[in-house]
Design a binder for these strands. Structure first.
Lengths: 212, 212
DNA sequence: AGACTCCGGATTGTATACGATCCCGGGTGC
DNA sequence: GCACCCGGGATCGTATACAATCCGGAGTCT
């Protein structure tokens, strides 16, 4: 048994490269070149491009090839609006269905967040934010919403708004996160949904401001 | 210029066949067979299957082939919940952005609906329902939401809930439709969103009832 | 000069052929 | 009888080769 490399799919590798910014928006994705880059045949590349097109990370034009999608601020705002609707739904479910243990684990995130803000560690704070999101998605137990949210998150990542992923005002973001956690833990579904929506709306507001 | 065959893509034809029920849920999609059925090479079939997998109409298992997806009632409910969130968002936008002309056109749908219910023509009523939906989607001018909604609608079509697509109680459905139209036409964004959510919630309630 | 035509290169789209993987049934040993 | 092993057949996965399409630029006619 040779230590077989886990053999992550070409689609995953390409997606990661796009999200990491190693393939900038607008870059043409030429099948032969990618064949070379990833060491697989054109068929695999082709399939990966089709998939990522459906995920909204790539645009394909007939007979003209594909390129990494560049989304405008307007589109980014739409993505966030859709996320607000779906993540609101997810939070609502989470508030209803969280177990006692899950609520405790959620609350346990707060001290770390506070600390990250106090020590001015935005990267760490952002990581905890992703963590919070991931937990809520698990707790909500809503596979359809989860899948859509994940796709949308990828779309709004790494593009013109990359900066706003690290929020301008961590204090506000912290307060919003705490509100979300509190609502879910206390089982208040309406408030959980509203808190998530407010949080994302405030991101949208920042986006709008920066767009001017 | 020979009358060129409109040449609709294999993906579209396969999708249509699935939605029309000509390929029942659970049917194995064997590439060679489809090659024969649609008169194209395996590559095209393959690509179509990948796309429809991403659209949620087909499930693919590695090295085991693809089959038409059969969704359970629980999944159907999740799909409707996600739709409620997104179509609510869409209605909210529509209420804000509809032009005068668009509002008139929306209202013009009401008499036909009334008539369809009075004359007990459920098929016609369902068609008008789809029409209403299409109009609202156009008016809302929200491409991201629109795309997601369309995908979700396809998922919940033609499956165990096909029956409920023709609503059990047209009178209630009619009232809900009118409420949606009125809210959008009067520019009440909150009420438009709420009306759409109520409408879809009532579909979910029917689904839940039938599941027992 | 301007616009039109046509050709060459680059790239995608498609067909064919081969190799890899998996399920399933029969056989074998205990 | 039962568990295990192993080979055959079907089907997916991938590489290779070729045809179709499109873009850009040189050349030409007015």
């Amino acid at each position: 048994m040779s230590p077989r490399p886990p053999k992550t799919s070409v689609t995953d590798r390409l997606r990661d490269d796009i999200l990491a910014g190693s393939l900038a928006p607008g870059t043409r994705l030429i099948e032969i070149q990618l064949t070379d880059r990833y060491g697989v045949g054109r068929a695999a590349i082709r399939s990966a491009i089709v998939e990522l097109d459906k995920e909204g990370l790539v645009v394909r034009e007939a007979n003209r090839g594909a390129k990494v999608r560049a989304i405008s601020v307007e589109e980014a705002i739409e993505v966030y609006e859709a996320r607000a609707a779906l993540e609101g739904l997810m939070a609502r479910h989470a508030a209803r269905e969280a177990t006692k243990l899950e609520r405790e684990e959620l609350r346990a995130l707060v001290p770390g967040m506070r600390e990250a803000v106090e020590r001015d560690a935005p990267t760490r704070f952002a990581a905890l934010g992703r963590d919070l999101h991931e937990r809520v998605s698990q707790i909500g137990r809503h596979r359809v919403a989860r899948h859509l949210i994940d796709t949308l998150r990828n779309q709004s990542r790494g593009h013109p708004d990359r900066l706003s992923a690290i929020p301008a005002r961590p204090e506000q973001s912290l307060a919003e996160h705490i509100a979300i956690i509190e609502a879910i833990c206390s089982g208040d579904a309406d408030e959980a949904q509203a808190a998530v929506e407010r949080h994302i709306e405030s991101i949208i507001a920042t986006l709008r401001r920066d767009a001017d």
